[in-house]
Design a protein around this nucleic acid. Structure first.
Lengths: 338, 338
DNA sequence: GTGAAAGCGCTAACAA
DNA sequence: TTGTTAGCGCTTTCAC
């Protein structure tokens, strides 16, 4: 069976297509009786308007896209939840696109979207490249954009992110206050705005406490890629740190596995803290100290900003930057002595 | 700036719209020179075809939907990954919809989809209701459907799921072999196909080993809803089990928290095993024994089946049921004595 | 209060 | 090889 169309409804009812259309949008100019008849039949046949046709006329799809590096990541999972919460309220549909940290994939997705598939999109940029020409192109089009978490500086759009510098500073200070002096800094995605702030915090805390700054204690990883355990094991054995500051959860997990393999006790031999939204962090062995970003709130806020912009008047286009605070959870992995 | 259209390209080049259209689809009947000119300008202006308009003509959107109960669940996260892997290959777009276990939401989503937004969809049904009229309706439409994991019996569509009975049986046998006699069974979503199989396995193992069957040791929960810790704590204190068989990860997490609160040692006082795709299960305190469903494979297989059906001839519509095996990971939470 | 008709951007059958 | 035209399903202006 073909899907039911307005035309079919009209034929069956002996009225015109436009009457049916108006009746279904509950237009005031339609006779109550007609309206009832139309709505009754529409319900019976389970008429569903074709969103493509509607879009073509109205140029409004009531759909937004969410572009993220990867979905299997607690942070982004929570962001999605936040976005969906708002979109449910406002009656928008959400399309989720994954870039897998691939610059070219991001370009393709963004280009596809400016074709007019969505009214706007939220993006957390990939770590594959600094090139943002594809995003600049968006500014010229009818598609709205809001950036979150991994944002691009000097870009004239609204942004939502967390206080990476401050929370990184707190996390590092916590380690130093616990007596750590030789702290590894494991980065992921060197060119990301978030990463650079976390790194600055690392150096600033060391400096503030008069601790030696050793650039060889820093190691870079590719986000959303499997961690090379052998390589990291060698690095740890070589550097003999008393603590590790991880910028993403995956690195902390790898460190746990490695410490288990090496028979290193956390926190006695080595302390670990990480940026992470892992909800079972408290149940790990030992419980993991985390800096948790307000992912759910970030999603909600970004979605709100985007929808406001989509529905708002163009002239009042107002660029906003919202910074939300992370929470630091001090647990056993950074205890003084267990 | 408005988005670039075929018409604009045609005007700029002094050719007709259809020529441009054909040149861009690389039609053989277009002069090579013209083709080059068109493609050059299209690239310069970053022309992106409007997918809505294309769909309206072709009735093919190269898009499928994925309907799941919730996204923040490791199982579904992996399913998504599998689906995306296939869709990337075959050049399909994926739309993700969450039902949050809400029957009405599922009805709304399905109805929306049969309007023609997608070529087909994958669904893991919600636990809110046994009513499947909205799904029956799909069979009459031009939209294809494949069910996965939580499937509906006696429904004439392809299905992909895991061997819940067998793996449940193995999990339960493992507990019994470890000497457990008083085993709680924590269910989630009573009317789900998966749950019923897991429950049958529970009873069959008890029976096989001549252990007493006590229906009061079974407790139901609502999936994807916060677990009521007080309630579950009372239940555990009341029943004094020597093991808990959890049908979903969330319940196992709750049990860990409760045991910690009560000072019960896992596995000495109480053993725990659960269905779960949690990737840090091995790092928990104690490491958690799991039955892991092949989520990634399920997603891949389901997506393949769906796309085959979409692209295949109608006459050969072939209904398939694929059953994939789960893996059992025996860890410290079910050790004989730690 | 209702209908006729135009047009959104694209594809494809038919003409030239 | 290229142009003309109709039409996908819907909304909306204009006419009655």
């Amino acid at each position: 069976m073909k899907n039911v169309t307005l035309k079919e409804l009209a034929a069956k009812l002996g009225v015109s297509v436009s009457t049916v259309s108006r009746a279904l949008t509950d237009s005031y100019e339609i006779n109550v009786e007609t309206k009832k008849r139309v709505q009754k039949l529409a319900k019976e046949l389970n008429y569903q308007p074709n969103p493509f046709a509607a879009f073509l006329r109205k140029h409004v799809s009531k759909t937004i896209a969410l572009i993220i590096p990867e979905i299997s990541n607690n942070f982004f999972t929570l962001v999605i939840k936040g976005v969906e919460t708002i979109c449910q309220e406002k009656d928008y549909y959400v399309l989720i696109y994954e870039t897998h940290e691939d610059y070219l994939k991001e370009v393709r997705i963004v280009n596809h979207l400016i074709g007019g598939r969505v009214d706007g999109f939220l993006i957390s940029v990939n770590s594959g490249s600094d090139n943002v020409d594809h995003l600049k192109e968006v500014l010229n089009r009818d598609v709205k954009m809001v950036m979150f978490d991994r944002v691009v500086d000097d870009f004239n759009v609204s942004k939502v992110y967390s206080n990476d510098y401050e929370s990184g500073f707190d996390g590092m200070s916590h380690l130093v206050n616990r007596g750590c002096k030789r702290i590894l800094f494991l980065r992921a995605g060197d060119n990301l705005s978030t990463m650079q702030k976390r790194e600055k915090a690392y150096f600033d805390v060391l400096e503030k406490h008069g601790l030696p700054i050793d650039h060889s204690l820093i190691k870079s990883f590719v986000p959303s890629k499997e961690v090379d355990l052998d390589d990291l094991t060698k690095f740890i054995l070589d550097k003999k740190p008393d603590a590790i500051f991880c910028t993403i959860e995956r690195l902390a997990i790898a460190c746990y596995d490695i410490c288990n393999n090496l028979g290193l006790n956390i926190p006695n031999d080595i302390k670990i803290i990480t940026f992470s939204c892992l909800n079972v962090a408290r149940l790990l062995n030992p419980s993991l100290s985390t800096i948790s970003q307000p992912a759910f709130e970030i999603g909600k806020t970004a979605a709100k900003l985007l929808i406001d912009e989509i529905e708002g008047k163009k002239e009042q286009k107002e660029i906003v930057e919202v910074v939300l605070a992370s929470t630091i959870n001090k647990r056993d992995s950074t205890k003084r002595h267990l």
